[in-house]
């Protein structure tokens, strides 16, 4: 029964994607109309420097943001689960979860205000003319991803029996050694999951990026969203296929490298 629903659910998730992938090879100018097999949209993509630039920017922003989110979010999740009592802990917990609930529109807007303020401060105090651009998008996406990573890590550590760590400490392990040999390895699966989640969120985001970006900060989703007036061309389908294949390959490699870790998603 559960398996049937898994198959149905995967079908629901994949049907539009397969359709999209299939019609990426259609010659017709109107998407989702079959006009004979053709690679013209992939060729068009290969010639479209704007799209390539944006795709490259998107992938690097997503990688940077996911990595930052993993570092900061991993620490935040650890601090919430194992940091003990410290000043401002309730506030910390609230803030770590806030990006999950802030509507993107609101978060984008408030971050924009902050960056503008920071730009002003940098110019008057340091004489620097900072630009909004890829960097601000990375910060915004990392903040969003941080919340997801923190939640995953915190949940993971909450289920980890603290006595395991206490036992190691009792046996004379330094706190750092306890962390590195016991806590961190237990965090790894949730960090990997969190990285993927943060990467995905970043790759998908239109709203945050369009708020906080500046010149030459057009990520792929923003570019497509803003060129909707050209209509959805099959080029967009081709692009979806290319990204999907790229990311799947990357995940496949990562999975293969990590396969020693027991293949346990939790």
């Amino acid at each position: 029964m559960a398996r049937l629903i898994l198959v149905l659910g995967l079908l629901f998730l994949w049907a539009p994607i397969l359709l999209l992938a299939g019609y990426a090879f259609s010659a017709d100018r109107i998407p989702f109309q079959w006009g004979g097999f053709s690679l013209r949209w992939f060729a068009a993509l290969a010639e479209n420097a704007r799209v390539q630039e944006a795709a490259l920017l998107s992938l690097s922003v997503a990688t940077g943001a996911a990595t930052l989110a993993c570092l900061a979010g991993g620490l935040a999740g650890w601090a919430l689960a194992r940091g003990g009592r410290f000043c401002g802990r309730p506030l910390f917990g609230l803030l770590a979860g806030a990006p999950l609930v802030l509507p993107e529109v609101v978060m984008g807007l408030s971050l924009l205000l902050l960056f503008v303020l920071a730009q002003g401060a940098a110019e008057t105090l340091l004489g620097w003319r900072l630009e909004r651009g890829a960097g601000t998008i990375v910060l915004a996406h990392a903040t969003l991803g941080l919340a997801y990573v923190a939640v995953l890590v915190q949940a993971r550590l909450a289920r980890l029996d603290p006595r395991l760590e206490e036992a190691a400490a009792d046996l004379g392990a330094m706190p750092r050694v306890v962390f590195l040999t016991i806590t961190l390895p237990q965090m790894v699966p949730s960090l990997v999951a969190g990285w993927l989640l943060a990467f995905t969120l970043s790759l998908d985001d239109v709203v945050l990026a369009s708020f906080v970006s500046g010149p030459a900060g057009t990520t792929l989703p923003v570019l497509i969203f803003s060129s909707l007036r050209m209509g959805l061309t099959p080029e967009v389908n081709a692009l979806g296929v290319v990204i999907l294949v790229l990311v799947l390959a990357a995940v496949g490699v990562a999975g293969w490298v990590l396969r020693g870790r027991g293949g346990d998603p939790g």
Binding site: L6, G9, L10, L13, W14, A15, P16, I17, L19, L20, Y23, P31, F32, L196, T200, L203, D204, D205, V206, L220, P221, I224, F225, L232, V236, N237, L239, G240, V241, I243, L244, V247, L248, V251, G255, G263, D264, P265
Partner: peptide, 25 residues
């Protein structure tokens, strides 16, 4: 892990191509 990846993968096509697919459907 492969099954989970299969669940997550449709998201990696990006929001816009995905919504475009729904419009097409």
């Amino acid at each position: 892990l492969p099954l989970l990846a299969l669940v997550l993968a449709p998201v990696w096509t990006g929001l816009m191509p995905r919504l475009g697919a729904w419009i097409g459907l």
